[in-house]
Each structure stands twice: as structure tokens, then as C-alpha cells.
Design a protein around this nucleic acid. Structure first.
Lengths: 140, 140
DNA sequence: GTATCTGCAAAACATTTGCAATTCT
DNA sequence: AGAATTGCAAATGTTTTGCAGATAC
């Protein structure tokens, strides 16, 4: 589930496409998402980057996550509640968490799949499907 | 969306069925859920009850909500993130929030409706579907 | 009379805000 | 120079914890 390497130039392009200026910190935060597909909290990102960027502050992580969210580079996923988790923009997929091992599975689901359950003329802007249960491995 | 009255004896029965001792505070918290179908936060419940129970403390609300959640009387819904909202056990339904007027709609959806999107042999214990969008009224 | 429940005060934790220093263009 | 970005320190808001007194069985 880990990528070994991503070209920094490629990340720059992505941020620029989403109208986000590619500062060093922002590049590293986005790179973190690509290298660790782990639906991180702000704190996880901070811990993962503080050795690479010793001057890094949590405020910058929070600023960056808020900006990325506004620009739709990432989305907040209300997986557990009190600490917010983030994921690279997950339009078209959702999350299932195993309550035994804690692993988070990406699942494919589209707005169309749930439109029929909604009140008349309700227009979906974004949605989350969060499933807690037990994965194959942990059922034994 | 409001009930005028519920028999206190009826609530006592419900709590007892779920293996929760029916103290006065707990009865009132559960009654709050029935009288106000508003997916409340801890603070909303506290504000709604503090006049009826002047000695009431937030700690008791938090204790009670945690206990109710463990006993499956209620469920946390990760609607927005930072403050936890609760709902009477919502197996079999989920929530759509209008981002304009803030109203929360209950929608009907069953585990079976999403089972097919999951990895092999994943067993759903509980799930949430959270939709943010625009309701009929606000689309004009 | 012992276990449970309540509620105060303080602590813990995640997140936000104000502002000064730094960096980029 | 001027605008955007960073990061420190302090504030905010929600939830948790420790503990003493009250209540229930």
C-alpha cells in the first residue's frame, strides 16, 4: 500500500492545478498522502514530517489541511468522530473500518447508488459511507 | 417532528430492556431524544435539561451518552466532525444534511443495500451514510 | 452497607486565532 | 515593496478523568 517515490514536480503540478501554491510544506503534506495511504489525522502527518522539516508547526498542518479541503484536494472523513481523518479526494469511494484490526478499506460507491434513498429533489454535493464491521481476516 | 408526551414508565421499560438502570437523569436524557428528534450534541441536551434538573452537570450527560452508546440505545453520528451528534439507534436509516438550511433528513437505507460494495466476507456491524447537499426547499 | 451514580474541578486533547517573523514574487 | 505563508504562544471548545458526596438496592 506504499509508494516508494513520487516526483516532486508531479506534485507541484497537481497542487497548481487545484489552485494551491506549492510551498515546500504543502508539497510535503501532499506527498505524505501519496506515500502513506493511511487516512491520516493532522497529528499523524505532523509526526511523519517533523523530522524532515524540523521547524514545522502543527498550525501549518492545520492551515494546509483546511486549504486542501477547501480546494477539494482532500476530504475529511468523519470515521470515528473526535479526531478528523483525511483522505485524498474520495469522490466515488467510501470507507469500511474493521473494528478488530483497525484497518481501513476503500470501497467503491457512487452518488447514483444512493440517490434513490433520498427525499425528493435532494441534490448530493458530497457524501460519506462509513462502515464499521469485521474483515475476512479477523472473522476466524 | 415533536412528541408532546411520553409515559415515563414506558421509558423506564426501554432503558431496563437495554440493561441500563433508569435513574432520573438517564430517563430525562432519553426522553429528550424522544421529544426532540433533533440529532443533538451533548451541549444541546445539557441546555435542554438544565432548567428541569438545576443540579445537572455536563459530566453526567457525557457519562450517560457513553453508556447509552455502549448499550446501543443510541448511536453517534459523525455528521460534521468536531462535535459529536447522537441519534436514537439508527440501524436501518441514515442522514442527509442540507448545507444551506442545516436541516437533517432521515433517510432509509439498509445494510443489504450496501453489502455488495464491500470486500469479500466483510461483516457489517454498523454503518453510517452521511450526505451533504441541498434540499428541495433551498434549491430555488 | 456496599455498589452505583452524580457532579465539581481540573486535566487532556484537538483545533483555532492573533500576531510577528519569514519567504516568495 | 507587497502579498502570502509560516510558526509560536495563547485561547477556545469538547470530552475525559479523579475524586468526594449522594443515592439506590
Amino acid at each position: 500500500m506504499k509508494k516508494e517515490h513520487v516526483e516532486i514536480e508531479e506534485i507541484k503540478k497537481i497542487l497548481t492545478n487545484y489552485d494551491v501554491r506549492p510551498s515546500f510544506q504543502r508539497l510535503k503534506v501532499y506527498e505524505y498522502f501519496i506515500l502513506n495511504r493511511n487516512h491520516p489525522t493532522a497529528e499523524m502527518i505532523f509526526q511523519g514530517l517533523k523530522d524532515i522539516i524540523p521547524s514545522l508547526s502543527r498550525t501549518t498542518i492545520y492551515n494546509t489541511l483546511k486549504l486542501f479541503t477547501q480546494k477539494k484536494l482532500i476530504q475529511a472523513i468523519p470515521l470515528d468522530s473526535n479526531t478528523i481523518r483525511y483522505d485524498i479526494n474520495h469522490d466515488g469511494h467510501a470507507h469500511a473500518k474493521c473494528i478488530i484490526c483497525g484497518e481501513i478499506f476503500d470501497i467503491k460507491i457512487k452518488a447514483d447508488d444512493i440517490q434513490h434513498t433520498l427525499p425528493d429533489s435532494f441534490e448530493i454535493k458530497e457524501f460519506d459511507v462509513i462502515i464499521r464491521g469485521c474483515c475476512k481476516k479477523c472473522k476466524k
